[in-house]
Computed example of a mutant assay.
Amino acid sequence: MTEISAEQRVALEAAAFRRLVEHLRKRSDVQNIDLMNLAGFCRNCLSNWYREAAEVSGIAMSKEESREVIYGMAYEEWRSRHQTDASAEQKAAFERSRPKE
């Protein structure tokens, strides 16, 4: 593997993150429950991870603020524009695959 500096690694990771967020914004047809069922995370998880990283860095951020970073708009606006009701099959798949505490 090519040697890269810590600064380059952070820049590459940030670029990949931005591309992932942009991809998720464009693919509003893909529901969060589908992401959870397939990959074990969704846009809300990503926004939580973003907020947690901000807090570790000493940056206060609300849940709503971090969701707006990921969704590109207020969460409630995104929900009203794009979210559909989960089917019985999607809900059942979620119950089977969700992490057990």
Rank of each mutant, 00 (worst) to 15 (best):
R18L: 05
G40E: 00
Q90C: 07
G58N: 14
G58R: 12
E22Y: 04
L24M: 06
A86V: 04
A11N: 06
R96M: 14
R51I: 01
I33E: 04
K26Y: 00
V21G: 01
E77L: 11
A93K: 15
A39G: 03
N48K: 10
S66G: 09
A11W: 04
E65F: 10
R81P: 08
A6M: 08
Y71F: 14
C42L: 02
E55Q: 04
S57E: 06
V56C: 08
R51M: 07
E22T: 12
A54Y: 04
G40P: 00
I4M: 15
Q31E: 03
H82R: 12
L12N: 07
F94L: 12
E13F: 08
S97E: 15
A92V: 09
K91E: 14
S5M: 08
S57V: 05
R25C: 00
R79P: 02
K63R: 13
C42N: 10
E68K: 03
E13I: 04
N37D: 03
A60H: 14
A11D: 08
V10E: 11
S28W: 07
N48L: 12
N32Y: 01
K91Y: 11
V10H: 13
E64Q: 13
A14P: 01
R67G: 05
M73R: 09
S62P: 01
G72K: 03
R51W: 04
S87M: 11
A53K: 15
V30E: 05
I70Q: 00
E77Y: 04
A88S: 12
R18S: 06
H82L: 09
W78Q: 09
Q90Y: 05
A53Q: 12
R79Q: 15
